[in-house]
């Protein structure tokens, strides 16, 4: 099997590995970087659980090959909080507004919402619902998640 070398920065740390070209960025993060916070629900682009920031843009890491990310700067859920494990404003809002139950979908939601609020600090309810449409949750019924985004937006504006 022909291997390719991938050099990336993940959560501020340089990482380098030799992988098959067909390895997705999601599998690279989980298997080669041992960062298992990036979850895989569907592995074909539908659920959003695997969302990471690739050079700042929220993308599905199951639809990017690791080799395509060569040279890129990646932030996973492990890099969203503070260095001492403090919750980010979005994470704190998810906790406070009951935006999670089993937690499987949560990394994808938190990463997506972090990017969304960075680009739109004061969204309308309609914009919030539209922004959440790319992430599926089987537990919460979404109301807690919508409340969490509102809460995080308010915390940010303050």
């Amino acid at each position: 099997m022909k291997m390719v070398t991938v050099t990336v920065t993940v959560n501020g740390e340089p990482r380098r590995a030799s992988v098959e070209a067909r390895k997705t960025l999601a599998d690279f993060l989980r298997e080669d970087c041992a960062l298992t916070g990036t979850h895989l629900g569907c592995e074909h682009g539908v659920c959003g659980a695997c969302t990471v920031l690739l050079d700042g843009a929220a993308v599905r890491s199951c639809l990017v090959f690791a080799v395509q990310a060569d040279g890129a700067d990646i932030t996973t859920i492990e890099g969203i909080g503070g260095p001492g494990g403090e919750l980010s404003p979005v994470q704190a809002a998810f906790r406070d507004a009951h935006g999670l139950q089993c937690g499987f979908c949560t990394p994808g939601f938190v990463v997506s919402v972090t990017a969304f609020l960075r680009d739109n600090a004061d969204p309308t309810d309609e914009e919030i619902r539209d922004a959440l449409s790319g992430n599926l949750c089987r537990c919460t019924g979404y109301q807690g998640i919508i409340n969490a985004v509102r809460l995080a937006a308010r915390a940010g504006v303050r």
Partner: peptide
């Protein structure tokens, strides 16, 4: 354009 998929899809 905004009708295409979700913002994460449109980023790629």
């Amino acid at each position: 354009t905004p009708l295409i998929g979700h913002f994460q899809i449109r980023n790629r």
